[in-house]
């Protein structure tokens, strides 16, 4: 089932009298339970597409169908209700959260705002959320700034899944993590997807990570789609110039390695 269908999405910015198309006629679709990766160099439009899909910025042209609705036409309470099904995780959870808040507070907000659990139920719901992302309930009273980067990104994922979303936009969500922690977070995302059929729009500049976890990939260059298809097929044999350049630039361990 098609969960998200983006068609001819366009966003232009005016800079110094010139108009630049950050996103230029981009179309793609995501099925339920699928990971679609958006990859490309800096300035290719990856994050702008994420913001357009989330309606953090409004497009100049194009349509976004989410769960069968015209997502761009939704307003007010209907938009808020639908937003619960569409969540996001950013690169830097320390910037995304109030640093003085506790873990419990960060997880309490979506449960309260979207009326998912009553006041009396919420401590138990928070404990359950922490367990779903591989943390323990004793983390709840800790301040966001005190916990490690890996724990913080798990809390960001817990907050994202608190509203039982069908799609999570992950914008460079593992890029700032140490490699050992990154592997654990990727495993967590895959486990959640397998258990709860969550779809991911996975934005990354790292083709190694994309190849490891995405079903399909869209390669972007200067706001346009350069090529798309099965993640492994595209990355193993890129056809577009930008695809070839991205693959050639990826750091490699010694090729003689067994």
């Amino acid at each position: 089932m098609t969960l998200l269908a983006v068609s001819d999405l366009t966003k232009r910015y005016r800079r110094g009298g010139k108009t630049i198309a950050a996103v230029d006629g981009v179309s793609f679709a995501i099925e339920s339970g699928e990971t679609l990766a958006l990859a490309g160099p800096s300035g290719s439009g990856k994050s702008t597409i994420a913001r357009l899909v989330l309606r953090l910025v409004e497009p100049d042209a194009g349509t976004v169908q989410f769960d069968g609705d015209d997502f761009l036409a939704l307003k007010g309470a209907a938009l808020r209700a639908r937003r619960a099904r569409l969540q996001m995780v950013f690169q830097d959870p320390l910037a995304a959260f109030n640093p003085r808040a506790t873990v419990a507070r960060v997880l309490d907000d979506p449960l309260r705002i979207h009326a998912i659990a009553s006041g009396a139920e919420r401590p138990a719901s928070i404990a359950a959320l922490l367990e779903r992302v591989g943390l323990t309930a004793d983390l709840a009273p800790r301040a966001i700034h005190e916990i490690s980067g890996g724990q913080r990104q798990r809390v960001a994922i817990a907050r994202a899944i608190a509203t039982n979303p069908s799609l999570i936009v992950l914008d460079e969500a593992v890029s700032a993590l140490d490699v050992s922690v990154r592997g654990q977070i990727l495993e967590l995302l895959l486990d959640l997807q397998a258990r709860e059929r969550i779809a991911y729009l996975f934005i990354s500049h790292d083709l190694g990570v994309v190849r490891a976890i995405a079903h399909r990939v869209v390669l972007l260059d200067a706001g346009r789609i350069a090529e798309s298809g099965d993640a492994r097929a595209v990355i193993d044999a890129p056809q577009s110039a930008i695809g070839k350049a991205l693959v050639a630039a990826a750091p490699r361990l010694n090729s003689t390695r067994p």
Binding site: E31, S32, G33, E34, T35, V179, S180, R182, G183, L186, E187, L190, A194, D206, L207, G208, V209, R211, A212, I213, A214, H215, R232, I235, D236, V247, A250, P251, R252, L253
Partner: peptide
Amino acid sequence: RTLLEAHLGLDASPLLRRTPA
């Protein structure tokens, strides 16, 4: 060894187990 294994190169074995979406 942990660092080497955690490196996700273009030749790494994918973490994604291909179950039909």
